[in-house]
Amino acid sequence: MAQYKDREGHLKVARAHTETVVVEDQEHTVKLGVFLSNTKSRRGKLAADKLQQLANLGLDWAT
């Protein structure tokens, strides 16, 4: 998510957007839009520390 925000300057991610990330020299495709949509709809079940991490990235719905 931080990679997307650094590149695009915002976190208004389309639901169909996929992001390629590199972890330990391996590329992985992440369905970022689906992740954010699902997380937002289930935010009531998230732990406070997870919500705070999302808020720190700039997601206003996580506050």
Rank of each mutant, 00 (worst) to 15 (best):
Thr29Lys: 13
His17Ala: 07
Val34Ser: 12
Asn56Cys: 07
Lys40Asn: 07
Leu46Pro: 01
Ala48Met: 15
Phe35Tyr: 12
Ala47Thr: 12
Asp49Trp: 15
Thr20His: 07
Lys40Gln: 09
Ala47Leu: 14
Ala48Phe: 15
Val30Ile: 11
Leu46Trp: 02
Asn38Val: 09
Lys5Asp: 08
Asn38Ser: 10
Gly58Tyr: 05
Lys5Val: 07
His28Ser: 10
Ala55Trp: 04
Ala55Lys: 07
Ala14Ile: 00
Glu27Val: 06
Arg7Leu: 14
Phe35Arg: 13
Lys5Met: 08
Gln3Ala: 11
Trp61His: 01
Ala47Pro: 12
Lys50Glu: 15
Tyr4Ala: 01
Leu36Tyr: 03
Ala55Met: 09
Gln52Met: 14
Gly44Leu: 00
Leu46Ala: 01
Arg15Gln: 03
Glu19Ile: 05
Ala14Met: 01
Leu11Tyr: 02
Arg15His: 02
Gly44Gln: 01
Thr29Asn: 11
Phe35Pro: 07
Leu59Pro: 04
Gln3Ser: 10
Val21Asp: 00
Thr63Asn: 14
Ala62Ser: 03
Gly33Thr: 01
Val23Arg: 06
Asp60Gln: 13
Val22Arg: 05
Ala55Tyr: 07
Glu8Met: 15
Glu8Leu: 13
Leu59Thr: 07
Ala55Arg: 07
His28Glu: 10
Val22Leu: 06
Glu24Ala: 12
Arg43Asn: 06
Lys40Glu: 08
Leu36Met: 06
Val21Thr: 02
His28Met: 11
His17Ile: 06
Gln52Val: 13
Glu27Ile: 08
Gln52His: 14
Tyr4Pro: 00
Met1His: 12
Thr29Gln: 12
Glu19Arg: 03
Asp49Met: 15
Leu11Cys: 02
Tyr4Ser: 01
Arg15Thr: 00
Leu57Gly: 05
Gln3Asp: 12
Gly58Ala: 02
Ala48Asp: 15
Asp25Pro: 09
Asn56Pro: 09
Lys12Thr: 11
His10Ala: 06
Arg7Trp: 14
Val23Leu: 08
Gln26Phe: 13
Lys12Asp: 11
Ala48Gly: 13
Lys31Arg: 14
Glu24Ile: 12
Asp60Pro: 10
Val30Gly: 05
Asn56Trp: 08
